[in-house]
Design a protein around this nucleic acid. Structure first.
Lengths: 121, 121
DNA sequence: TGCAAATTTGAATATCTGTTCATATATTAA
DNA sequence: TTAATATATGAACAGATATTCAAATTTGCA
């Protein structure tokens, strides 16, 4: 526990509480999980995507309806829906030429609810 | 309800289900809430900040410990902590020269838990 | 007081993100 | 088949973001 151990991690920063850091390291998540979680929250970290997710939390809607709702282009909405689809936040069903989008599961709604609680208190 | 109403919103996109859009509009959140929510999720949409939040979910830690844990500079950690502080995700307490950070409330942990559930199923 | 440790801050830069525009695909109807 | 509708896609550009580096604060101690 002497100061000489510093030689081991020359590049690393100084560290006051080595035991706490070790404990934190042992309880840490896998690196890939942080990145996947980050992608999930990042996808929800945009006002327009939240508008889409909130609307789809009420009922399924098609691309051009969402574009009308947001006041943005259908292309922009489509790009955002692709991202949300890739992360399994939404899914769709085709009816003729129209694709109806809806939330993939209840997690999204829960996340938004807890987020709102955080804001409102 | 005739097609002539299109003149009203020339710039807007076409819209298939006007009633659904109207309903969605009536249930929508305030614009400021979407932006605040987006800021919250955006703050959680970064691997290193999630590492910080997860670690602080276990126990309070100081800046240089967090830097050692993440393997990044103290300056970078400090910048990120400022963002997390501004959004009330973390708070700190001073003990001498050392600032100990911890989660501000239970919401952060809940959000991460639900996020993990989403990933893992 | 003066010095060192812990942290914060601001500016600069390289990277990432969201939108736009043009084009492509898929489905239906004529 | 051709035309029209709904949506997807790719490239490009403007704006946002994370890290780095240097300098400034803040606190404790000699």
């Amino acid at each position: 526990m002497s100061g000489q151990e510093e030689k081991e991690d020359r590049c690393a920063v100084r560290c006051i509480h080595r035991d706490q850091v070790a404990r934190a390291r042992s309880k840490a998540l896998a690196s890939s999980e942080y990145e996947k979680l980050a992608a999930l929250f990042k996808a929800m970290g945009d006002g327009n995507r939240l508008r889409i997710l909130w609307a789809l939390g009420q009922e399924e809607m098609c691309v051009c309806d969402l574009a009308a709702l947001l006041g943005s282009s259908e292309s922009a909405v489509s790009h955002q829906l692709r991202l949300l689809r890739q992360l399994a936040l939404v899914k769709n069903r085709r009816e003729g030429q129209v694709l109806y989008y809806r939330l993939n599961d209840g997690h999204v709604h829960s996340l938004i609810q807890i987020g709102l609680e955080h804001l409102r208190e």
